[in-house]
Design a protein around this nucleic acid. Structure first.
Lengths: 228, 228
DNA sequence: TATTGTGAAAGGGTTCACAGCG
DNA sequence: CGCTGTGAACCCTTTCACAATA
């Protein structure tokens, strides 16, 4: 089994969604070409992606929608439910609990923690916010599969360490900093500030490209300043 | 000027943060090696990244912290302020308005829109939620640089079209679907469900790798089932 | 004829390694 | 001697193109 790239995994998620739609439309079979066009990629990419996990199609006919979806969901681990511990009952944490869309995919927030005494003991959706110190004890009641870090930057690494000690095997991080986890723990970071900055960069570049004179002027003066 | 990859832009954002820290520590110069180690990448990568934009360092000495940071912020377009229109005053939208961290980086939410009559007219932070129909008129008062889509999936594409018509040049999308924008408009999507699924995949794979017997058994039965 | 599965080719990003310079 | 800037080598991902098959 070759190492699977993150982009391949992302596309598997997309395929699942497209297949859900197609299934709702009542289609029985789908070709790699049609699976690709809804996603803006090539049909070869679709076939390559799928072929790393098995031979799910039939030449001349395409893929059976229902069965392919079941395969992909099994590969992604969406054929089971996941117990999620949320740390940080602030803005993002509250939004995550309020947005129930993740439950549909099998991710259940089963406990919410925070360090702020002003929040501990209060209700958040169906949960009562617990003190972060209660995390180790909470593991005895029900183990957690995934931890979500929705705390301020400064607290993030220590929260990660606590979650790892609590036995989670994956962490979704919303704090805008690099975190360190043991290699047997999966980590994904959602960094919204970085996404804004990516847009800012793209817009800025588009402008300087349209007016290359300004680019050279800017880069020039910048380089001059940089020379101390 | 070569095409800049998304990963390079992400790293530039990281460099900016590391430089901010290093600056706070009072350091005057920094080497590509030290810039790299805080981020878990190679020093060669740092130098390659920076060299696509200019020669900001001095051989034998490294980079001047303050000046390099100014260069990077200018490249990312963080030397100005950005006017952001938020569409969708639900969970994520509310969290974004409440979280003031983006303002620090220059991104100001200047207007909030929603389609739900129950929300229109109500206050959200310092804003009054306006009907999405008011978007075209609002542009006359103050133009928007960036639009944020924090609506349900079904509304997302039409909101994007409205934002594009309103003249935004970048869109940050939180709806879990593929969106289409003209090529002169930048698009970034934050798909939290997909991040959860990425974790689910990684954890699942780690298990089957540790017990390869189960993998083969599973893949086998799956392949059999797929054959109709 | 339609479409998959897959080696081979192409493309793009990362790392190496060293010349050039302070 | 230390560190940058960069061409060349390497590696990983995507695309091509076609034999195999329904």
């Amino acid at each position: 089994m070759p190492r699977i790239s993150e982009s391949t995994v992302r596309r598997l998620s997309h395929y699942d969604r497209v297949l859900e739609e197609v299934q709702a439309e009542g289609k029985r079979m789908i070709s790699s070409h049609r699976l690709a066009e809804r996603e803006g990629i090539t049909s070869a990419q679709v076939r390559k992606d799928l072929s790393t996990f098995g031979s799910f199609g039939r030449r001349g006919l395409g893929y059976n929608v229902e069965r392919l979806r079941a395969e992909i969901r099994a590969i992604l681990g969406l054929d089971r439910r996941w117990r999620v511990a949320l740390v940080g009952a602030g803005n993002i944490g509250s939004a995550l609990v309020a947005y129930r869309g993740f439950e549909k995919q099998g991710f259940d927030v089963v406990a919410v923690f925070d360090r702020d005494p002003a929040r501990v003991g209060h209700r958040l959706g169906r949960h009562t916010v617990q003190d972060i110190a209660a995390l180790p004890a909470a593991v005895r009641d029900h183990s957690f599969d995934i931890g979500v870090v929705a705390t301020p930057i400064q607290a993030a690494q220590s929260v990660v360490d606590a979650l790892v000690a609590a036995g989670v095997r994956g962490i979704l991080n919303f704090a805008p900093r690099k975190l360190f986890v043991p290699e047997n723990v999966a980590l994904r970071t959602v960094d919204m500030a970085m996404e804004f900055e990516g847009l800012s960069f793209a817009i800025t570049q588009a402008s300087v490209r349209r007016a290359p004179g300004r680019l050279r002027a800017r880069a020039g003066s910048a380089a001059r300043r940089a020379r101390e």
